[in-house]
Design a protein around this nucleic acid. Structure first.
Lengths: 254, 254
DNA sequence: CGACTGATTGAGTTTCCTCAAGAACTGTGG
DNA sequence: CCACAGTTCTTGAGGAAACTCAATCAGTCG
């Protein structure tokens, strides 16, 4: 059970404090004063570590909290009675999930870890109360929500009129941009989600995505090795995104 | 200039008061006490009437306010540098637009009237302040925002895996549900948007949408007369929506 | 009334999906 | 450490749904 030990160490390593968090600038604390930050710290109930495939919450469950990715990654998706699903988005550190639950006190989509992932839990009742007292938090919360909406718009633009290759290019470009915001190497992507998830997210089938990766590798744009994708020619990738790029890249960088 | 006269009468007819508004139950005032409602009234700066094709706000403009449709209808869309656009949604009375502007103080999409439309303007600074003081308003605001997000999820499910006919069926079903919420006849739809807009929204081309209307009319599901669409066989329409229906109809009814 | 925009219908083409098989990776147990 | 079963990914061939191009028709507005 070496795993468990590592797990515990991880939790320990992650200081339960927004002020000392590396994601400070891209997460909820952005633009919030020192004193108020302590209150936000107190609001974050705890940090959980989830193994790959484990759910943060499931569609239909009672809404209790919002969650922020601390490390790792998540996917959100909806399932229809028919059994098939639609991937709505992938979430990297600093990104918020659970907002759709506010409508009727039930989560309207499911969220799962794509790899070993740690998340901060923000009980909504507390957060709401605090936001009422701290205008800066209220503003930042709204800003984050709005960012999510803009991201969804980007997704729709992609699904609407883009060709398959443009979709994949835009997807990679978007991930790259978010890597940059996290100060990661934007040309060395690690796609924690399956090809199936990517295809579903893009409104394509697995085979098409696979073929596109191969084609883009043959064109010298990417070096693909299973989950690792290196962007060799960012200029060509941008070209492949087509004219909708401006929206798509703003999308997650907002 | 009979038009102008009508216009003035319209404005007059629309009492500037949330408490007396017919949309009371589906709009921001839902669940808010009498006293607080008066404050909300004071926040609504004014009611504007827009002719068909006129913009509420344009992508890139400074963000100042949210808007609620009072009567008529709006479309929101993004334009890419390439010149093409993606319709993000259509908005009926009681629905809110402008939320995407919160990210960076600029609207990230454009909004236009699809017909003669009256809207309430909610200056965001005031609204935010009031929401801080009135928890019920804060809650309702969040609920409305969340409803928008759920609607967008429905849109994505549709764009993701649905066939053309399912998409149109889901679209009509959604409009029908929103009519019901507004206590309108849910089987007598007036589609204020062009076929082009519908096609764009659904991720299809005009010709396909046109063919689908014809096919659904031939099948006895609809009676189509230009912008007027009568749903003759709701049962068949539901069938045509496929398995994703549950999400799609919840979509706007949440 | 005639020009214009918007909607419909038809014919041909393309992109992407479906079906099918094989290859590569994962992880589990001997 | 390796073998094997299961999953995920890749590649190929054929087909279908929706797109493109083009012409006609219907409503609208000056």
């Amino acid at each position: 059970m070496i795993e468990t030990t590592t797990n515990l160490l991880d939790i320990d390593a992650l200081r339960r404090s927004c002020s000392s968090c590396a994601l400070h600038e891209v997460c909820l604390p952005a633009g919030i004063g020192r004193g108020d930050l302590e209150q936000l710290d107190a609001t974050v109930r705890d940090i959980r570590v989830l193994d790959r495939g484990k759910a943060v919450f499931r569609q239909g469950e009672a809404f209790t909290a919002l969650f922020v990715v601390r490390s790792g990654s998540l996917k959100t998706f909806v399932e229809s009675p028919g059994g098939d699903m639609q991937v709505l988005g992938f979430h990297l550190p600093g990104e918020l999930v659970g907002l759709d639950g506010l409508t009727n006190d039930h989560y309207r989509c499911s969220t799962e870890a794509l790899e070993r992932t740690s998340i901060c839990e923000l009980p909504y009742a507390k957060l709401q109360k605090l936001a009422g007292e701290v205008p800066a938090l209220q503003r930042q919360l709204m800003r984050v929500i709005s960012r999510e909406m803009v991201a969804e718009h980007g997704h729709m633009v992609m699904m609407g009129k883009q060709q398959a290759q443009e979709r994949l290019a835009i997807f990679l470009y978007s991930i790259s941009g978010r890597y940059a915001r996290l100060s990661r190497d934007p040309y060395a992507l690690v796609l924690s989600m399956s090809r199936y998830d990517i295809a579903n997210y893009l409104g394509l089938v697995v085979e098409t995505v696979s073929r596109l990766f191969s084609r883009m590798e043959a064109a010298g744009v990417l070096a693909v090795s299973r989950k690792s994708v290196r962007i060799l020619r960012p200029d060509l990738l941008v070209e492949m995104c087509g004219s909708h790029l401006a929206n798509a890249c703003d999308e997650k960088l907002g």
